[in-house]
Computed example of a mutant assay.
Amino acid sequence: MLRFLPETETDLPEVEGLLDLAFAPGRELLSSYQLRQGVPPVAGLSMIARDDYDALVGAIRFWPVRVGAAGDPALLLGPVAVHPIRQGEGIGAALIGETLERAAESGWPAVILVGDEPYYRRFGFTRAAAEALDFPRPVNPARVLARALRPDGLAHLAGAVRPWS
């Protein structure tokens, strides 16, 4: 059985170790990291998954970002990581589903991510929803996806995606 818990300061070393294990070296050079620098992840939405042995088997983080000249708020999802020996068990999907519900309940209007549309489409993310966004370079624009968390969530979301602070 898995337990989904909010990520805390004490989880940080384990989460960073999982991210290092799950992603290629140099992950900090990705454009999405530009948006995260100096900004803490959103408390209550950044979560971890622990198994029966209390081992960290998954993690997800959300970051606040601003969009366009008006600085409209949105969330940046990522990274989502699952320990390599536990991939394929639905842990990542469960983390995404749980946290998207929490994000909607918290009043966030929309979520942006960089990822594969065929995977994220089942959670409501599309490239079409992100067409009006100018994501920091370098990024493959075909991988910038978005989804609304409320009916008008994407109505005013257009322009440059930039850090929260």
Score class of each variant (00 low, 15 high):
R61G: 11
L45W: 14
G44R: 00
V82Q: 09
A59P: 07
Y120R: 07
A110C: 15
E131V: 11
A49P: 11
E28T: 15
E16G: 02
L45E: 00
L113A: 04
L5R: 12
S46I: 06
A155R: 14
I85L: 13
E101D: 13
E9F: 06
E7M: 14
S31C: 00
R102L: 15
Y53F: 08
G26N: 12
R86G: 01
R50D: 05
E117K: 00
T126D: 02
E117S: 03
L5H: 09
R143S: 01
P118F: 05
L154A: 09
G124L: 03
V82A: 02
Q34P: 00
I60C: 02
L35K: 08
R122P: 06
A59N: 15
V65N: 11
V139A: 02
D52A: 13
A70L: 13
G107F: 00
G78I: 06
P79E: 08
G78V: 04
E101S: 10
V82C: 09
D116F: 04
D152S: 13
T10V: 14
R121Y: 04
V67C: 14
A146E: 03
L2E: 12
V67E: 00
L149W: 04
R150N: 07
F23G: 09
D20G: 02
A74E: 00
G44I: 05
P64T: 07
E101W: 03
Y33P: 03
D11H: 14
G90M: 15
V139K: 07
P40M: 07
R27P: 06
S46K: 10
D152C: 00
A81R: 12
A22R: 03
L75G: 04
A70F: 01
G88R: 09
L21R: 15
I112S: 04
G159Y: 11
L30D: 04
L18W: 07
R122V: 06
M1H: 14
L35A: 09
V67M: 09
A94W: 04
R143L: 03
A146C: 14
V139R: 05
S32W: 04
P73R: 04
D51N: 15
G92R: 00
L56H: 11
D52F: 03
L145F: 01
L76E: 10
G107P: 15
G153V: 09
G153W: 07
W164V: 03
D51H: 12
S106K: 12
A104M: 00
D52V: 13
P163V: 11
S31K: 05
D52C: 09
G159W: 10
D54Y: 08
D72P: 04
A24W: 06
E89M: 13
G153S: 06
A129C: 02
A43P: 05
G68N: 10
Q34K: 13
P138Q: 00
L19P: 01
L12E: 12
P73T: 01
E89H: 15
